[in-house]
């Protein structure tokens, strides 16, 4: 049993937005509830009186589809549905790396990608892959709909730009480039059921001969108060061939951009030590994938 609350079950997005606006800080949205309910158990907030579930608007926000080459994911899509999607497996491997490693099957069966983003923790597994894919978020609020870049969404640890009543409805990934792929590396202790100690995603776009890197993106997990795009590190890779040396160099730059802290799970020093290794490995693997996908 949790601390008492009233459970509100809007049937449409508009109704959900209205309830969110009306009840403000007395209410919280819930999708899969794997963060909401654990928080309710461990550190219940006094003010919380209403939980507004999005489960009953699920039908409208549960999809994975390509539209004009843009990938569109409904915010209520579960990690498990993404993990099983042939499209994600084949074309968006860097995202598949993340969704297939969130918690356990039981968690993935209920936890949503939208919830992962909206919790806005630096440890969220989908964040770095979505950052390197250049994801945009569609948000519905009382003044209508807007689209923002994921990297402009986070404001700090567990903080984002959502206003009262705002609902994340869709994640949009721009068209895939040729000769491009990414890899997300998550470092943990037991390979299941845990948040990453630290993680890195690298996405590379190569020229036709795979000799030169035309564009690169690097993002880091649990390396700063927010999921962090490491732009200087990415810049370091552009215009050069992909090599272990170049990737290590980029990894070292990434560490300078990061500000990892010591937490319950591990120390800042350890995080700094392994980040360049993860960037190198992720980069080499992304490059391998580009080669494989070409063949």
């Amino acid at each position: 049993m949790f601390k008492p609350f009233e459970y509100l079950r809007p049937k449409s997005i508009t109704e959900a937005v209205e309830l969110g606006v009306t009840y403000g800080s007395e209410a919280q949205y819930m999708a899969g509830g794997t963060d909401v309910l654990v928080n309710l158990k461990n550190k219940p907030q006094k003010a919380l009186k209403f939980i507004i579930t999005l489960r009953y608007v699920n039908d409208q926000l549960n999809y994975i589809k390509l539209e004009d080459r843009y990938l569109k994911i409904g915010a209520l899509t579960t990690h498990r549905d993404l993990e099983k999607s042939a499209l994600i497996q084949r074309e968006y491997q860097v995202l598949h790396d993340a969704v297939s490693q969130v918690g356990s099957v039981q968690i993935r069966n209920v936890a949503t990608i939208g919830g992962n983003i909206c919790s806005s923790l630096p440890s969220a597994d989908t964040a770095s892959p979505l950052l390197v894919l250049g994801a945009q978020l569609k948000i519905m609020g009382q003044d209508g709909e807007k689209v923002v870049a994921l990297e402009d969404f986070y404001l700090g640890h567990a903080q984002n730009i959502l206003n009262k009543g705002d609902i994340l409805t869709e994640i949009i990934i721009p068209p895939k480039k040729s000769y491009a792929a990414g890899k997300y590396y998550k470092l943990g202790r037991r390979g299941a059921m845990e948040l990453p100690l630290v993680g890195a995603a690298v996405y590379l776009v190569m020229d036709k001969n795979l000799d030169l890197c035309l564009d690169a993106r690097v993002a880091l997990t649990t390396a700063a108060p927010v999921p962090l795009p490491a732009k200087k590190a990415a810049q370091e890779l552009v215009g050069k061939p992909i090599s272990p040396d170049n990737l290590t160099k980029a990894g070292k730059i990434a560490v300078q951009e990061a500000s990892p802290r010591t937490s319950l799970r591990t120390t800042a020093a350890y995080r700094r030590e392994v980040l360049p290794v993860l960037v190198r490995r992720a980069g080499l693997e992304a490059y391998e994938r580009i080669k494989q996908n070409r063949n």
Partner: peptide, 12 residues
Amino acid sequence: KAVNSCLYLAVD
């Protein structure tokens, strides 16, 4: 689907 019943509301 397998779920954790400790994180699933009975009303649902």
